[in-house]
């Protein structure tokens, strides 16, 4: 019955193996890459340590000055790291004096070549100079005369102008004075008028204010009067309302009381219907029970409060109460509290 004794070849054995190896290769590649990436941070720290040595300021200072004098030391600083510190010290000392020397020499040499050709032409130059001097003197004389003349004219002119200016200034002052007086007069006139105007306005205003006040007073009085009347009316209305409300309440209460009485009577009637009266009891005995009622009319508890003296009657009434559930209750649940603890009083005779 064995339908297959052979083992069926499973699908995808080789692809599964390839995939498994692939997963591991990917994972290890990721791991190696990640760890290699992390190892670079320690190298960075090494660089930090190396750069914290302080030859930097000494190394940067020397390069510019020694260049023109000796090019050899330029190669030295980068080659050996600890050496630069002692070597740079003498270097900056030597270059500064040597450079100024050259500068001074160049300056002193420059004027010399100019003097030599001058000596050769001294004779000619001298004659030319004397001539020039004479010409110059004459010219100066002329210049002086011209200047004096001009000065004189200038002074005359200035004096005239000064006089003219003085005159003008005086006229101006006169005019200014007149103008000011006039303005002062006008201003005073104006002020006076304004004062009058203001006075007038003030009076009018006062008058108006007085009238307004009187009017307001009158209005206020009227208002008060009205308010008093309104308050009285309101008072009356409220009293009326209060009376109405009380009446309505009383009516409602009466209605409720009526309803309660009605349902109590119904309960009693129901109980009465269920009583199996014992025969031939003397007189009119009365039994009283306390009944605890549940919402919905169920009876929770029946307790004898006052016996009639006849056990047969008492037990007959108790049975009847138990039989009468559910008791008829008013549909309004608000009235239920009145029925929670019911006292049932049953007379033997109707």
């Amino acid at each position: 019955m064995a339908l297959r004794k052979f083992v069926r070849p499973e699908p995808g054995r080789v692809p599964a193996a390839v995939l498994a190896v692939l997963v591991h290769l990917v994972f290890f590649a990721f791991l190696i890459f990640g760890l290699n990436w992390k190892t670079e941070s320690p190298e960075g720290m090494m660089v930090d340590l190396w750069s914290s040595l302080p030859p930097a300021p000494a190394k940067t200072a020397p390069p510019p000055p020694p260049k023109p004098i000796e090019p050899a030391p330029e190669v030295k600083p980068p080659e050996t790291k600890p050496l630069p510190q002692p070597e740079p010290l003498p270097k900056p000392e030597t270059p500064p004096p040597s450079k100024p020397d050259i500068a001074i020499k160049e300056k002193t040499e420059k004027p010399k070549p100019e003097k030599k050709p001058l000596e050769n032409k001294q004779q000619l130059e001298k004659e030319r100079k004397e001539k020039e001097l004479q010409e110059k003197k004459e010219q100066e004389q002329r210049e002086k005369e011209r200047k004096e003349k001009a000065e004189k004219e200038q002074k005359e002119k200035e004096r005239k102008e000064e006089e003219q200016r003085e005159k003008e200034r005086k006229e101006k002052e006169q005019k200014e004075k007149e103008r000011k007086e006039k303005a002062e007069k006008e201003r005073k006139e104006k002020e006076r008028k304004e004062e009058e105007q203001r006075e007038k306005e003030r009076k009018e205003k006062e008058q108006k204010e007085k009238e307004r006040k009187e009017k307001a007073e009158k209005e206020r009085k009227e208002k008060e009067q009205q308010a008093r009347v309104a308050a009285e009316v309101e008072q009356l209305r409220r009293e009326q309302e209060e009376r109405d409300r009380l009446q309505a309440e009383a009516a409602a209460q009466a209605r409720l009381a009526k309803e309660i009485d009605e349902y109590k009577a119904r309960i009693l009637a129901k109980i009465r219907r269920n009583i199996v009266m014992p025969q031939d009891l003397p007189g009119n005995p009365v039994v009283e029970f306390d009944v605890t009622v549940l919402p919905g009319g169920d009876i929770l508890d029946v307790r004898l409060r006052k016996s009639s003296g006849f056990t047969a009657f008492d037990s007959a009434v108790e049975r009847a109460i138990a039989l009468s559930k559910p008791l008829p209750l008013p549909p309004d649940p608000a009235l239920f509290p009145k029925f929670r603890n019911l006292s049932v009083k049953v007379h033997y005779l109707e």
């Binding site: 499973e10 699908p11 995808g12 054995r13 599964a16 995939l19 498994a20 997963v23 591991h24």
Partner: peptide, 21 residues
């Protein structure tokens, strides 16, 4: 552990194919 991981991945893929089929 490497061998166990390789083997388990191999079986994971094999079973995947088998169940799908």
């Amino acid at each position: 552990l490497v061998i166990a991981s390789l083997m388990s991945w191999w079986y994971i893929f094999r079973k995947l194919f088998v169940i799908r089929e």
